[in-house]
Amino acid sequence: MPFLLLLLLFPLLLLLLFLNVATFSFSRLGMSPESAFLFLTASIIGSTVNIPLSRRRVLVRERRAFPFSLFLFYYPPVVQERVIYLNVGGAGLPALLSLYLLLGGRAPLIPSLFALIIVTIVAKAMARPHPGVGIVMPAFIPPLVAAAAALLFSPPGQAAPVAYVAGTMGTLIGADLLNWRAIQNLGAQAVSIGGAGIFDGIFLVGVIAAFIG
């Protein structure tokens, strides 16, 4: 019985451990532990919240044709609404925190810009449009590239905020914004910027960034 109880509680213990580590990481960016925990909680909850940015009605055609006669066929048009959303947890909140770090002087502008350009190039190269889903990319790529670029360009003691700004904004720009045309041409009826395969990478940026400070 105790073993079964421990087995049932094990996922919860892992979640609590991850939240504690993540809270410590975000607090290294200049946030209080309480603020870091609230930001993390808001990010996780916000990953389920999408704000509509664009609505477009598109015409598609059914595969089956209805014959008028022996030689004439009619393909009835089907109208669908394609909506592009902004994911709060994967795009909105990280952008606000990045702006806070830049305006507050925690992330120096020039090193952050250089590191951001590198992450943007890599994210653009690695991101792939996935029909019916959106833009996806390996979650571990943005944190590792952002960490390396921050260590290369940032002054001592400021690598963590530079890595966060470069990792989050570089991922959003390279993976999502630079693939805007591809997003609009995807078969998905709903596409979320900062969602799908992008949220995981952006979330991991904040966790990993603090450990290089």
Rank of each mutant, 00 (worst) to 15 (best):
T23V: 11
R64F: 11
S47D: 04
R82V: 15
V21C: 14
P77D: 12
R64T: 10
L70V: 13
L19C: 09
Y75W: 12
R64M: 08
T41I: 06
P67W: 05
E81W: 01
S54V: 04
L19G: 04
S25Q: 11
R57M: 02
F26E: 09
L38Y: 03
F37S: 09
F73L: 08
V79L: 03
S27Y: 01
L53H: 06
L70E: 14
V60I: 06
G30W: 12
I44S: 05
V83G: 03
S54A: 09
Y74L: 15
I84W: 02
R57A: 08
V21H: 14
E62V: 03
L38G: 01
I44W: 04
R82T: 12
F18E: 06
F66Y: 14
R55Y: 00
V78F: 12
P33G: 05
P76S: 02
T48P: 00
F68M: 15
R63H: 13
Y75G: 03
F37N: 01
A36V: 12
P52G: 06
P67K: 10
Y85W: 02
V79K: 04
T48C: 01
L40H: 07
P67R: 15
I51Q: 07
R63G: 15
Y85K: 04
T23L: 09
F71P: 02
Y85H: 06
F26T: 11
E81C: 01
L38M: 03
N50E: 10
I84S: 11
R61G: 09
L59C: 05
T48V: 03
